[in-house]
């Protein structure tokens, strides 16, 4: 497995993660649908996971992979809670456009 990962130079991983992360960020910034924003957040998390795994393999240190599992668990929990919130929001205002969700102020 290690060989497989190391078969590709590290720079490629970095580039891919950066691209994925940027897509995630831009998605969060410019999309209005809450579900898509949530997916973009997941994308950002996964890009980081990818980076962690890559570094872990190249440095021969397993500690980073532990973090990956943590992040996956947290992400799973987040999705569970997040989607549940979405459902509730949709039931209430029949929309998932975040521009309508501006009650929480002042």
């Amino acid at each position: 497995m290690k060989e497989v990962v190391q078969g590709i130079p590290l720079n490629y991983y970095l580039a891919l993660s950066t691209v994925l992360f940027s897509i995630g960020v831009l998605g969060v910034l410019f999309r209005r649908n809450a579900i898509i924003i949530l997916m973009c957040v997941e994308l950002m998390l996964n890009s980081v996971n990818l980076l962690l795994v890559a570094f872990s393999a190249f440095h021969g240190d397993a500690k980073a992979q532990v973090f990956v599992f943590f992040i996956m668990i947290v992400a799973a929990a987040e999705v569970a809670v997040g989607l549940a919130l979405m459902v509730l929001i949709y039931r209430n205002i029949k929309s998932l456009d975040i521009d309508f969700l501006n009650k929480l102020k002042w």
């Binding site: 910034l29 209005r32 975040i98 521009d99 969700l101 501006n102 009650k103 929480l104 102020k105 002042w106």
Partner: peptide
């Protein structure tokens, strides 16, 4: 507090 527009974006 005016900064807290409530707009997530």
């Amino acid at each position: 507090r005016r900064l807290q527009t409530g707009n997530i974006g």
